[in-house]
Amino acid sequence: MQTGKRITQTAWTLGFLGLGITLLAPANVPAMSGEDAPEVIEIDSLSKLYGPVTFDHGAHVAMATCADCHHHTTGTGTADPSCARCHDGKEEAESVSCSDCHAAEPFNDEGLKRMENHELFHMDKPGLKGAYHLNCITCHQEIGGATGCQDCHTMTEAGEKRFNTGKHAPEGYTPGAAHQDSGKH
């Protein structure tokens, strides 16, 4: 009898404790902050015509909120009211990596299939390359940051070949001569 009462008491205590932990958890374990992320991130998943981008995450944490780049997946949560309709929680998403949501090949069969789903709010989600550039360049244009291609990544040999530049420049090409009006007689 006595033992039975004790077990019940212990169960209740454990129960309350568990509930307490569950309730307190979001407050006790804050979402990931910018300082938790690596200081410098090498973005090289798409490098072919251009070399990898050395992204100074630390410097950007000082200038922007998490949501500016990570939407609703980490840190402060989203500020965009149309995103908040579904993603108003501040919990960490399972992954905060760009490439987990933005496909490297957005126009393959899978991507085209997704765009057929007109019910899907994110049917118009940019691919990985688009997501990087749209995020970076749009902001850099606004704050007057670097926007030139080679400001962020240097062109590779393959890139020079593709763009007919550097070692592969057209014969007899003089930089800066192109603006002349060849139509004026």
């Binding site: 007919n164 530049t165 592969h168 090409y173 930089p175 192109a178």
Partner: peptide, 20 residues
Amino acid sequence: PAQPEPFDDFNVFDQRLHGQ
């Protein structure tokens, strides 16, 4: 065929042929 200017030459935006 190869173009007279490299594709990373942005001066081409100033080109006008017969004003076009």
